[in-house]
Structure formats: C-alpha cells, structure tokens
Design a protein around this nucleic acid. Structure first.
Lengths: 337, 337
DNA sequence: CTGTTAGCGCTTTCAA
DNA sequence: TTGAAAGCGCTAACAG
C-alpha cells in the first residue's frame, strides 16, 4: 500500500529513474535490472500512484463525457460504445449526466478548463457559438457525438435524411395525412438539441417532394418523453380530420404514440401507421418501424477520433456521417383510408 | 490557460498560500485581500489544476463504480441515482462497465489499488471472500449496491422476500403450476451475481409455504436477456403439462416470456400469468405485473454511505435493506384452469 | 491574517 | 544502460 517508487528503488539498489523506466516499459533497461526491479515490486506489493503519475506526466488517461439524460436508451447505447472503446484504449470514462439547463451550461463551461480529463466527448448537445469558441480556445481535445459545430469534429447521422426516409416510407404506403411528434421547442432551445428539428425538416421536405401541403395542426412538440408524446398524439388523433400516420422523432415518443392509439381504440397499423427513430432495443420487441442509427458505433467512432486528437493528430474539425436505414416492421402498413 | 497559482500570487502581490486559501475559501483571508486575489484570478483567467490539487491533497473528488452490463435498464437507473447524488456532493463518477468475467476480475483486483478514486461502488457483483478481504485491506472506502458481503456495507433489497411476494401473488390467484425463469447458473457463478438465486429461493419458499411441490422441469435458467428468456419460456410452455403462470427473475426476462406466449398464441393473462422483477420503465408500458424495487434510491443511498466513509466515519459494514412492493398490473389474473 | 517552505510520487531530462 | 536531479502545481504546516 504505502510503498513508493523510492522504496522500490532503494530495495532494488537502483536509481529512481530506473524503476520508472521499468514501470513505463522503456526498452533502455537491461533484462537483469528489470527482473530485479520487478521482483522487488512484487515483493513490496507496490502499485504506482496514478495521481502522481498523472500530475507528473500531464496525462490522466481519462475522458469526460457530457451526456444529456443518460438513462435514455439511445444515450446509454452510445455511452456503451464509448466505454468499450475507451476501456480498450486503457482510458477511463467520467460521466456527466445533464438533466437541467443549468448543469448543461456549467458542464460546457467548466469541463474543458478543469484538466481532470485528457479529452471531452459531448453527446447531443450542440455548443453555442461562444461555447464552441471557448472549447476550442481551451485546447482540450473535444469530439461531438450526435451533433455538430464548425469548430469541433463530430460523429453523427443525417437526421434530415432520416426524417425524409421515415416520411417517404409512409407516403409510399399511400399516406397523405401524416403527423409529426417531436421535442418541445423550448427544450430544444434550452439544451441546444438539434436532432428533432432536423428530423422535422426531413419530414417537411418529404412532404414537399410529394406535393403534400404540410398542415400546422399535424406538427406537435412536447417535452421529450413517452408520456408527453402520448398526450400529444391523443390530441392529434382526436382532430376532426386526424392523421393516418405519425412520424415520431424518437422511438420513445413513438411508444407514446402507440399508447395514445391504444387509449383511443385505434388499431396499429390498420388504422394508424407509426414510425419512430433510433431503433432502440425495445423497438424490435414492439415491432416498431423505425429509422435505425448506429448508436453504439457513434460512441465508438467518437472515441477513435478523440484519441487521435489526444495523441496530437490535429486533423481539421470534420463532420463524419454514419449510415442510417429504415427498418420496416409491424407498425406501418398501406393506407386504407 | 497556462497560468499557475504562482502567477496569481505574483500579480496580486501576495504569497502562494494566500491564493490557495482563497481558492479553498478559507475564512482566514481579509476581505480586501480576497477581493484582490479574485480579481487577478479573473483577469488572468486562471483555473487551478485539478490534478495538482488531487496530487497534493490526496483527494480526487472522484468515485469509481463497477457496473455489470450497464445498459440494462435496472443498472442504468441505479447509475443515475449514483450520478445525481455524486454531482450534488461535488464528486465525479467514473464508470467501469463489466461485460466479461475477465473484466470483472480485473476491476475487482485493480480498482481499489489504483488510487484514482476516493471511493468505490460495486453494483450487483458480490466480492468473493478473497476479494472482499483485499478490498478491505486496500483501505479504499467501498459500498456494495444490490449485493452484499461480510466486510463491506451494502444497500440492497430482500430478493428472497421479493421472490416470495411474486410467487405468493400467483398462488393467491389460484395458480398451482408456476414456472420460474432466471439467470444461467454459470453466469451467476462466473460474475458472482446473487439476485436471481435469491429470487428463486423466495419462489421455492412460497411454493413450500402453500404445500405446492416444486417441479424441477418448471425451473429454468439461461443467460440473462430477453431472447434467451423467450427460448426458455417457449420450452416451458410446450411441456405436456405447462405452467399456468411464470415468475421471471427480471422484467427483461419477463418480456422474453411475454414474447414466447405471443409466439405460441398463448393469451396473457387469460391463459398465462407473468410476473417480473425490478419495475423498469417499460414495465408500466407493457402493463407488466412486477416486484418494484427502488433502483434510483439504491444508488443514491449507496453514495450517501460511501461519502460518509470517505469523510472518515468508520461505521461497521452494515447491510441496509430498501423496501420492495408488488405492483399488480395486467399480466396476471385468476387461474382458470 | 499572511508569507514561506516542505513535500505529495512520479516522469524526464541531463550527465555519466 | 543507469543515477541524479529538476520540477509538475498545489496544499498544509509553520512562522511570523
């Protein structure tokens, strides 16, 4: 426990530096010396102090991640990709769970400055211009996941395209009255989330491409969550001329839509088609048609980019897009109205 | 960025110690001096180095958590409780995701030694006797969550009681042929998970208390997961004399059971009653009857105990039990066979 | 109340 | 190939 590198050096009859070299598997140590040092280390049950090591070397072997609402299945899956990739590279993961705007802002502000981590990963929260500039100025390597910025590299999917994919699928099934359920505008603005807005954009584009006039009353927004989406969808479905299909900006919200249909005795997909987004684990269980995005892989790839930057590769801040695909299951069918 | 405490001291015309005192909000600094130092700090855009601080003080303000399969909803929810409580106390959370036995053992072995954290939280993985002794000897504060040991304090629920609760509920509904779906024995042994076995024990006790002879062919085990549980349940339900009710050791496994019923055209709850365990988020959506345990709170409470220990309170390693309750929903009903 | 000083345990030159 | 020595930036103990 209490043994230090000095104790080891003394006991092995070598210099401090030699022990350090052995610890860092430097090649400039004779096999004999190495053996001796290793023996003493084992004998003394010595473990190098990580903090001292970090302090001296300036490397913490730790990466911080800002994750909004990290219990959301999509976020967890990204985090898993991050953790696995990080662990493979010998790095530790510090998680900052953001559930309030105050915490969001505090994390954005403080994390790059406090040098407890060698790098920073930010999930879904787009830095505002001033924040992006600060992040850049801080000098800490940063990679964005599921969002983007001019000044930091990012790993993401094309949400606009995803929205189009989902909506086009519904249009191809003959639907003309298609509703949209997405995040509340205030929430988007406060956290600076962007995916719901982009998916909405894709939805609008697909409608336009098919010459379908968008109806404002079909577009609804609410705090992200199953329950909130359920309420929104209930209203949507009780309009005089209700939609025959609904595109939800996430699988969680799609689940709320399914609940609303159940509440109102509306059969899915016979009377209502529903498409989600993400393809979280439970989507398959529910037979939910959705737009799949590679959640785990975004985390993994984000780590790769970050570790490159940490080791000095100063590549330009590029946006990297991972592929998405529509997964057609049992909640969508031909429009029969 | 590059400014150190020395620069601040020089620029403010004070000693090093004074700046340090200001940083640590010591009361022994005159308001005037404090003001001056604070001004210089702002002017120089100085941020104290956390690593240097940790190194010098010996405190990292970080807690490590070993979490097996941290994407499982129940684990995530515990982690959220941990993160929230830790953040409130100014601590950071480092997550170690364990998905293999090798990693489990490595984490158990290394984490208490590497002094990158002030304390350690272990979820669901019971330390083996030798490990528990090592943990104790390491001197690092440790708290166990959802598992226990003689030598470390822990926060848990009474899984045996939970198993009884679930099974008794089924018995009271008139069921006599009750199946059990739980974790594979090899997996339990390899990771040293205990909850599935305890829930099984509760199941057996409840049967015994009602004079129902347990049937070996009704007790099945498989790798934890929805798919695996589905396969197990399919077999269970295709026996010559299939059970009329199934108690699954987790909600995830209960979902597999529901899928199996669906596969075989068996109506739930009319022809089959199903009870899960945990009450994860999706349980309500599915109308799953289950045994609710306070997941978030176990994490929260674990942190409280850990922070107490970190700040020196050397209370004896007690087991703390949090309450559970049966939540009766739509997957259980009177036995009609 | 404040300045000075001695480390914390390790990495990393720099000589030898 | 090795030893010695200079910090890394801060906290805390001690003097004043």
């Amino acid at each position: 426990m209490g043994a230090t590198i000095r104790d080891v050096a003394r006991a092995a009859g070598v210099g401090l530096g030699t022990v350090s070299r052995v610890l860092n598997s430097s090649s400039l140590v004779s096999p004999a010396t190495r053996r001796r040092v290793l023996d003493v280390i084992a004998e003394l049950n010595y473990t190098p102090s990580q903090i001292a090591r970090s302090f001296s070397s300036g490397k913490t072997l730790t990466v911080a991640t800002i994750a909004p609402f990290f219990t959301r299945p999509s976020v967890v899956e990204r985090l898993r990709g991050i953790e696995v990739a990080l662990a493979a590279g010998g790095y530790n993961l510090v998680v900052f769970n953001v559930e309030t705007v105050a915490r969001r802002d505090a994390c954005m502000r403080d994390l790059p400055r406090r040098d407890r981590a060698d790098g920073l990963l930010i999930i879904s929260l787009a830095p505002r211009p001033a924040e992006a500039a600060d992040l850049e100025a801080s000098g800490m390597p940063v990679v964005l996941i599921d969002t983007q910025s001019e000044r930091q590299p990012s790993v993401m999917v094309d949400d606009v395209c995803g929205g189009e994919l989902a909506t086009r699928h519904l249009i191809e099934l003959g639907h003309r009255r298609i509703g949209f359920v997405g995040d509340s505008l205030e929430e988007q603005r406060a956290f600076n989330f962007t995916s719901s807005a982009n998916r909405l954009l894709g939805y609008l584009r697909a409608l336009e491409a098919s010459g379908i006039a968008p109806r404002p009353e079909y577009e609804c927004h609410g705090i992200h969550g199953r329950y909130e989406a359920r309420v929104l969808a209930q209203n949507l479905l009780q309009q005089p001329e209700p939609p025959t299909a609904i595109f939800a900006a996430s699988d969680t919200q799609a689940m709320g839509v399914l609940e609303a249909a159940r509440d109102l005795g509306i059969l899915v997909p016979a009377q209502l088609s529903v498409v989600g987004f993400d393809d979280i684990d439970v989507a398959e269980y529910l037979g939910l048609t959705t737009v799949r995005q590679p959640l785990f892989e975004t985390g993994e790839r984000g780590v790769e980019l970050l570790l490159e930057r940490i080791s000095g590769a100063a590549s330009p801040p590029e946006q990297e897009y991972l592929p998405i695909e529509l997964v057609s299951r049992a909640t969508t069918s031909q429009c029969k109205m």
